[in-house]
Each structure stands twice: as structure tokens, then as C-alpha cells.
């Protein structure tokens, strides 16, 4: 049988390429030799036990922490840019306009002393919007989209519940329409019903906007619902990766088998 030489749909270029990314904290391994490519519209999950290096890897990918060695390439205007070989201000600008970071603790991603509308509107101004009425309207739309009532637009995040704060953070991250989003335990610390709502929201937004995302979670059910591909980390290394349902249903590595048998319902 002929193996296809011409792909049915031409492959676009990956939006993010990690090459042998390694981060050490002194003697301690944060993450070790991680390589992968991420394409537009793809959602990659990272799972693994506490201390396995998930957040460390995410912080390197997102341009927050410089890896000890290895390279991260981000495709910008058609050209791959090596994230840590560009001037700091250029990197900061990319981080603000091209991608978004959803922190586990909404306090780390929100301005707590600025109104909900301001938290969202600020990002539009970063992007260059100057028309006040338009910004407010757009902020309003986004609040509705994440199911925060319009009449809360002038309230400060500290007046919101944890779930509302997290939804506001997601709106703040998504409003500039980033091409790439990083999330570290986006549903951590929320109760189950609030989680379900947030997950549904994320699923729909990621699909509708066609953004690429990297999501760190310890919850395999969350991984199954939101991600296309999965990387399993242990002791800083990626021990198994593949299509999410493959890794969860037919795990090969001893550690993944342990992980999946511990959560039979995933």
C-alpha cells in the first residue's frame, strides 16, 4: 500500500519548538532534555507527580525563566525566534501580545486594585486600542463570555469568588487574542462544580479561537477533556508522550501505568 507522500492538508509550521530544554537549580534537576513541537490549534497537556518539573518547564516555555541549556523557538511573523537570544524588552513585548499565561493563583495574573473592566481593558490598550467606548464595550463582551455579570464590571477582583477571579483572569489573558496560551493548573483549588464550568468554558474558547495551548494539570480527567496530546513527566524527564487517549488508555511506561491506575475514572 502506498504511504502518502503528499499530505492531505499541507502542514503549517509549528508555532512553538522546544529543543532539549533543561533547567537546573544548582545541583537539583528542574526539567531535563525536553523536546517537542506544538502546532497552531493544538492543546498539549503536561501531567506528572508533584515536583516532576511541570511548572519549571512551563516557565521556560513561556519565557519567564531562562533554561540552563536548550532552546525555545517561537514562530513570529513567519520566522522562528529563539526566545532567549533576543533582547529582554522584545521578549517582554512578545509575551504581552502574542501569548498569554493563566496562573494557578488568579492573584498572580490579575491586578487586584483595578476594576474587572480595567483588568480586561488594560490588555486592549496594550494592543494599541485607544477608544474608551470601544474598549469598555469589548471588555463587557468578554466578561459576559466568561459568565461574569455585566453589572460587576466596576467591581474589584478582591470582591469576587475564587472561581470568578479565575474566569476574569482567563478573560484578561484571552482578550488580546493570543496565538499561544500557557496554563498552570487552571482549575486547581476550585470546587468541582466550579471546575466543570471553567473547563467547559476553556474547551469552547480554545476550540473557537483556534489557539494553541500548553496546560499543566495533575488531574487526568481535565487532561482528557482539554488536551489533544499528553506528556508525562517524572523527576524532570518526559517519560511518555503521545495522543492523550493513547497515553491514558494504553500506557506503556511503568510510571504512567501507576498514574492511570490510581485514577480509574479518568
Amino acid at each position: 500500500m502506498r504511504e502518502s507522500s503528499t499530505p492531505v492538508i499541507a502542514d503549517p509550521d509549528p508555532i512553538l519548538i522546544a529543543k532539549n530544554v533543561t533547567k537546573h537549580y544548582g545541583e537539583r534537576i528542574g526539567c531535563e532534555d525536553v523536546s517537542f513541537s506544538l502546532w497552531p490549534g493544538e492543546v498539549l497537556g503536561i501531567v506528572g507527580e508533584s515536583g516532576s518539573g511541570k511548572s519549571t518547564l512551563l516557565r521556560c516555555l513561556a519565557g519567564i525563566d531562562r533554561p540552563t541549556s536548550g532552546e525555545i523557538l517561537f514562530r513570529h511573523e513567519g520566522e522562528p525566534i529563539s526566545l532567549f537570544n533576543i533582547p529582554e524588552p522584545t521578549r517582554r513585548k512578545l509575551m504581552r501580545t502574542e501569548w498569554g499565561i493563566v496562573h494557578q493563583n488568579p492573584r498572580d495574573g490579575l491586578r487586584m486594585d483595578v476594576s474587572a473592566g480595567g483588568n480586561v481593558g488594560e490588555r486592549l490598550m496594550d494592543r494599541g486600542d485607544r477608544h474608551y467606548g470601544k474598549i469598555r464595550r469589548s471588555a463587557m463582551e468578554w466578561l459576559t463570555r466568561v459568565e461574569i455579570n455585566e453589572d460587576r464590571i466596576d467591581d474589584r477582583p478582591r470582591q469576587f469568588s475564587g472561581g470568578m477571579q479565575q474566569r476574569l483572569q482567563i478573560a484578561r489573558v484571552l482578550v488580546p487574542e493570543p496565538r499561544l496560551v500557557f496554563m498552570d493548573e487552571p482549575t486547581g483549588g476550585l470546587d468541582v462544580s466550579v471546575q466543570a464550568r471553567l473547563l467547559d468554558l476553556l474547551r469552547v474558547l480554545v476550540r473557537d479561537l483556534g489557539i494553541a495551548a500548553v496546560i499543566v494539570t495533575h488531574d487526568l480527567a481535565v487532561a482528557r477533556l482539554l488536551t489533544d496530546r499528553l506528556m508525562v513527566m517524572k523527576g524532570g524527564y518526559v517519560v511518555e508522550e503521545g495522543l492523550t487517549d493513547q497515553v491514558l488508555d494504553d500506557p506503556h511506561h511503568a510510571y504512567t501505568q501507576l498514574l492511570t491506575s490510581a485514577v480509574l475514572a479518568a
Binding site: 502506498r2 504511504e3 502518502s4 489533544d228 496530546r229 495522543l243
Partner: peptide, 11 residues
């Protein structure tokens, strides 16, 4: 075309 499900990339 034909795709080999076993060796094809996840996407």
C-alpha cells in the same frame, strides 16, 4: 491517500 495510524503524528 492512506495514513498509517500507527506511525502518524498525533495531529
Amino acid at each position: 491517500d492512506f495514513i498509517d495510524i500507527v506511525t502518524a503524528t498525533p495531529r
